[in-house]
Design a protein around this nucleic acid. Structure first.
Length: 586
RNA sequence: GCGCCCGUAGCUCAGUUGGAUAGAGCAUCAGGCUUCGAACCUGAGGGUCGGGAGUUCGAAUCUCUCCGGGCGCGCCA
């Protein structure tokens, strides 16, 4: 609808070019928007206001000329000049009838567009270190990333979803050491737990897995051998030095192959847990990309070679540096440390180059808000390797605070007091969980009220939308119970009978769905969809209370049913994108 | 100190290529079920869009500045 009006305006402006207007304006300046006030019609354009100055004409005069030059169109009932020079469009009833027919015709595909023109986009999200269970912050990133990917797909992009597994670094070694110590405890050894180790209960579970898989023969070592000559742990000593020494000792006692086997087993267990957790949450990935596999494939050396060939590397203090400042970063970055180890940053730019080399035009990294400092750096890396710097985009997801009513739940990393995604899902349910995560703009910190999310009262917005969907299903059951059947063709043919103000409001709301979906895609703002669905449900509930659908008059009855089935379809489409179920009964 | 995000009704928040009289939900108050599900609907009150200045036909939106809050600034990952 909107696009058609914009095309009409464009045509009118082309007619005026050379006379009233100096030149044909760019298509991007011709914009039509929904009006706020019903008296201003359905759509309005400020194009005359925007062009008046350059054309040296009064805005209202220009607007009048544009209106006069508009080609006739069956969708438009009336056009007028209003206010300072707005052009208001009042749509003909058949415009909405046509839209309702489109909903019935396209069904689950209604709302999709070709905006993205098949461009390949990689959405990377969650990518939590496999060193512990996902927490509520990851949950928000999961919900956001999954829905953003779905919305982009609906908008015509060729989308792939990816999880980057940080399985190469020191954090994994620390997990291995932590689990091994717990394992030794299980075997009956007595030794202190490292201050810098992972303390969660899941580590004890991992230790049991280890024992079940390996028994005592291969991995058990006497505590005395483990602890011999280790430096002091905190608080007397340095916890970082201690854990590093412990890791080295584990490698020494188990052999590098043995240590690696422990690591592999833990990694597999953690990834299985994360995968299941996300799967139950309705979040799936097309690819799980391993940092270690990437390194083994030579991708990091490849990226460094590219940087070298571009003369973007230099040596200082024994380390190899990348001239990031030449590409907008605030300081140069080390890629190979003095000790010969490549930095995380090196593997990260290699990973992003790899994404581009796999054919993705556009890269979206969904990141936690605490990662903002590092976007500029990766972008600098991409630019230095000859990639367009703006191919990378990173929506930053602000933090989540949990509340019970007004009481804030502390979320220390050390003691797990209700911080995992799994616990959150178990308590409030997947639907409420996804919904609450997506209700707010991602760049706004989120206060997640558990009591509200759990409540089955009118305070909870999830049920409000689902209820509208279930109510339509209930109406259809009632129809069948009365021995009547819905005649779609007859209903769609009689849409002109839907003249009541509540019916008009529902029709208008329905027709906005494709626009909302495009907006959500362009702005990376899935929450726009949530707000829209609430409005649509509101229009429906109001209508439901005002009119009876199952009436004697068959054409009117079928028209009304066609309308509410349209509502049901759009709600289902929207909820599906959000990852929330659309139940027939509640 | 430097950088990023944010500040809108009592509370939680929508409102981005600058648009017409700033909107929802909750809470509060007043109403609505012998009729398709009351997990619903209708109405009312509630605002210095953090303060100030600027840009212009027009600013919650853009710029500057100040105040307040969150986060980040490693040869860690």
């Amino acid at each position: 609808m909107k696009q058609e009006l914009e095309q009409l305006l464009q045509a009118a402006l082309e007619k005026l070019a050379g006379s009233l207007l100096p030149e044909k304006p760019a298509a991007s300046s011709v914009v039509v928007e929904r009006t706020r006030e019903a008296q201003h019609g359905d759509f309005a354009s400020n194009v005359a206001l925007r062009l008046a100055k350059a054309a040296r004409v009064k805005p209202r005069e220009l607007a009048a000329a544009i209106v006069a030059a508009l080609p006739a169109n069956e969708l438009v009932a009336r056009t007028e000049v209003a206010g300072a020079g707005f052009i208001n469009f009042h749509l003909a009833p058949q415009a909405y009838a046509r839209e309702l027919a489109a909903i019935h015709e396209r069904g689950a595909h209604y709302g999709e567009s070709a905006l993205g023109a098949g461009r390949r986009v990689l959405v990377e999200f969650v990518s939590a270190n496999p060193t512990g269970p996902l927490h509520v912050g990851h949950g928000r990133q999961a919900a956001y990333g999954a829905t953003l990917a779905s919305v982009l797909q609906a908008a015509g992009y060729d989308v792939a979803r990816e999880y980057y597994i940080n399985d190469a670094g020191r954090q994994m070694d620390i997990l291995a050491a932590s689990a091994w110590v717990r394992y030794l405890e299980l075997c009956g050894e007595r030794l202190p737990f490292p201050e810098n180790g992972y303390r969660g209960d899941y580590v004890r579970v991992l230790a049991q897995d280890l024992k079940a898989a390996a028994g005592e023969a291969t991995l058990r070592r006497p505590a005395a051998a483990v602890l011999a000559n280790l430096p002091a742990d905190a608080p007397a000593g340095d916890k970082e030095a201690y854990i590093d020494a412990l890791i080295a000792r584990a490698r020494e006692l188990l052999g590098s192959d043995g240590f690696r086997q422990v690591l592999e087993l833990l990694l597999e267990a953690m990834l299985t847990d994360i995968r299941e957790d996300l799967g139950e949450f309705g979040v799936t990935f097309d690819n799980w990309c391993s940092e270690r596999a990437l390194a083994e494939s030579g991708a990091i050396d490849h990226a460094l070679a590219v940087l070298e060939s571009q003369k973007r590397l230099y040596r200082r203090d024994g380390a190899l540096w990348f001239r990031a400042t030449e590409f907008g970063d605030e300081k140069d970055r080390v890629v190979v440390r003095e000790n010969g180890h490549k930095t995380y940053f090196a593997s990260d730019i290699a990973y992003h180059l790899n994404k581009r080399e796999r054919g993705f035009e556009h890269l979206i990294d969904v990141l936690g808000a605490d990662h903002h400092g590092y976007v500029a750096r990766v972008r600098a890396g991409l630019a230095a390797m000859g990639q367009p710097g703006d191919c990378l985009e990173a929506p930053l997801i602000q933090f989540v605070s949990l509340y019970r009513g007004t009481e804030k739940i502390p979320m220390g990393k050390r003691e797990a007091q209700f911080v995992t995604l799994r616990q959150l899902r178990a308590e409030v349910g997947n639907d409420a969980c996804r919904f609450f995560y997506l209700m707010r703009s991602h760049d706004q910190p989120l206060d997640f009220d558990l009591e509200l999310a759990k409540s089955r009262t009118n305070e909870n917005p999830v049920y409000y939308i689902q209820y509208a969907h279930a109510r339509v299903a209930s109406v259809m059951k009632q129809l069948a119970a009365r021995g009547l059947a819905f005649d779609r063709a007859a209903g769609l043919a009689a849409v002109a009978a839907l003249t009541a103000s509540h019916e008009q409001a529902v029709l208008r709301s329905l027709a906005r769905y494709p626009e909302v979906l495009e907006q959500a895609a362009v702005n990376r703002a899935p929450h726009a969809l949530v707000h829209y669905l609430r409005e649509l449900a509101n229009a429906f509930h109001t209508y439901y209370n005002a009119e009876v659908f199952i009436v004697e008059d068959a054409p009117l009855r079928n028209a009304r049913l066609a309308l509410v089935l349209g509502v049901q379809q759009v709600i289902r489409n929207g909820l599906t994108l959000l990852g929330v179920s659309a139940p027939e009964t509640m």
